[in-house]
Write a protein that binds this DNA or RNA. Structure first.
Lengths: 339, 339
DNA sequence: TGATTTTACTGAAACGGTTAAGTGATTTGA
DNA sequence: TCAAATCACTTAACCGTTTCAGTAAAATCA
């Protein structure tokens, strides 16, 4: 089954391939008579011609593809969205990209953390990396001259665009909110804290709030595992075993808050009566929880949209580096009670 | 900033481009001396050469890309994973693909339902479509000779590979389980029921079970909206307003079950005391629900893996059509009580 | 009316690889 | 010892587009 190419169309319409190319792309500043144009279009439909995107990309050095790499939250696990934040974010990215007739080239992390594989020589027009930590993987990318936007990454760099939130402030807001409600024994539960990662910032915010309020920091109140429902459940068990010292917890991701709720309930305890919880992100799940989760809301949809927009801007020639810190705020729901 | 191409490497190493190509691909049945090979590799690292994937794809007619199209559950909404089933499935697909060094080209539905856009002339090696209904979109695809696997799609076709489950059986199992527990006033809640879609099958199963048990079917017991948490919550309200006639509900997707639980609780009612619920899919959320959701479990991970495997098989020359019906079973959790 | 611009094309050189078909030199086999 | 096979490469055609630089004819201008 021979594939039909632009040549076949040209032959069918009795014109040169260049002309065909001009009409199917309706290239500006090219004058083609209506008559010829029509003839070519007819030939296209008749032969059912579909342009080869690889050839097109090769010639035009434009792929209409945005690479998106999302880290695994639990290394080695196949489940990419164990933190639902990533699912929500990806949705938004995909939606925005599609509006601009871009597609997404999706990838989990390459085994060697080498983002470059996905961005290989003009295989994508731009690349969005979410939640990377400063690694050599990022440096490699620099060699390409393709636009990169780093989402939720704290890396000082003169070139990469960034979009994120003030995670430290967020952590502080969450914790301060709890303090305001009368709590002083406040757990911090999170995944591993990577240097310069968002979780580290949120942790700093937690400590900031404590310090501001003159509450001593207790290392025992910090629970570090990974960002998953299961870990949070286990953490609840652990807190119970230790005798329920804390009256509140700041869960650095909503999914952790949900795990806490469930873990507690499993043992007959209740949120917020036995433990007040504030989460982070306001993923769509947060309102589904029972009790629904009081959380630090960030506009995930805007985050995705902005990231795509930065790529688009860069592709269309905007040379300057863009940075965006999106606003956050507490949304009060049911998981916190006054002490 | 000039891009380095295979020619530069060839020049640097003092060999022809063909030789370079052979070395970097280590093409079988080509003998290259260790010496030359080493020299070329050195040149590659020195110049930091990265092959252009578009050129490679063009020449080799292989892209190492699998197109994945996921329908919007709520048209016009940007949120692709409002049914978390898709997120779970995508995770699995991505993971499996990556194991075989494939990447994913992700797309929501094109406005015109034309899947062909994503699959354009050899732009992907294969395409996985999940939850399509028989449309002209599918027919268009046929013109390309690229492998297609349809996930959760009931379409009789001599060419497309399919992977799915027996949704009708699943619906029957869920309903029969409820009947077995003593229920006879059983609601069916679902999204719109598309002709030949999975929800229709599950609905048929629901009716099958009713019929087998000699329980009359009540149209009032069926609630059709869309597959979203919000809709299920609204449905709970509606059931309450009608005076709680049903004692149980078969939610044709877990997210609906979760919405029901929450909706009920919001009004002071409880699951399973006031309503028994069985869900469908066993998405990772199902066990996070409170009470955790009794549901018809399907192996979402296997589904994704199988879909990718079918593409891989087809790409590597396996000509015959493959079909897989994965097993399902009830997993008993907390959302159903004996009447 | 002749010079100039515009219109409607065409030719061919990229784009950056892959791969079938050579081609000499060196090994091997009998 | 010599033909045949193997080794280590190279040549060049090809993949299917885009796009720059023409070019002849038609239209416009002074």
């Amino acid at each position: 089954m021979k594939r039909v190419s632009i040549k076949d169309v040209a032959k069918e319409a009795g014109v040169s391939v260049a002309t065909v190319s001009y009409v199917i792309n309706n290239t500006p500043n090219q004058s083609i008579s209506d008559e010829t144009s029509l003839r070519i279009r007819k030939a296209v439909t008749k032969l059912n011609y579909i342009p080869n995107l690889n050839a097109r990309s090769l010639a035009s050095r434009k792929t209409n593809l945005i690479g998106v790499v999302i880290p695994q939250t639990e290394p080695g696990k196949e489940f990419m969205f164990s933190n639902p934040f990533y699912g929500d974010l990806l949705s938004s990215i995909e939606y925005t990209a599609r509006q601009h007739s871009y597609h997404l080239l999706l990838s989990g992390p390459e085994p060697n953390q080498s983002y470059i594989n996905i961005a290989r020589n003009r295989s994508v027009d731009g690349i969005i990396i979410v939640g990377a930590y400063p690694t050599k993987g990022l440096d490699e990318l620099r060699q390409l001259d393709i636009p990169v936007v780093l989402v939720d990454t704290y890396v000082k760099d003169p070139v990469y665009h960034t979009v994120g939130i003030d995670d430290r402030l967020g952590g502080k807001m969450a914790t301060a909110y709890l303090i305001e409600k009368g709590h002083s024994k406040i757990a911090f539960v999170s995944g591993q804290i990577e240097e310069q990662g968002v979780m580290q910032k949120r942790f700093q915010g937690y400590r900031d709030a404590l310090e501001d309020a003159g509450i001593p920091f207790h290392q025992d109140f910090v629970y570090l595992g990974n960002i998953s429902f299961e870990y949070a459940q286990a953490t609840a068990d652990e807190m119970l075993r230790r005798g329920r010292i804390e009256t509140a917890a700041f869960a650095s991701a909503d999914i952790l808050g949900m795990g806490l709720i469930k873990g507690l309930r499993r043992q007959g305890f209740h949120v917020p009566e036995d433990l007040s919880i504030v989460g982070f992100d306001d993923v769509s799940l947060a309102q589904m929880a029972d009790p629904s989760l009081t959380t630090v809301r960030q506009d995930i949809s805007a985050k995705g949209k902005t990231a795509v927009q930065f790529i688009l801007d860069a592709v269309s020639g905007n040379i300057e580096k863009q940075e965006k810190i999106l606003p956050i705020h507490i949304v009060e729901r049911e998981s916190v009670k006054n002490l």
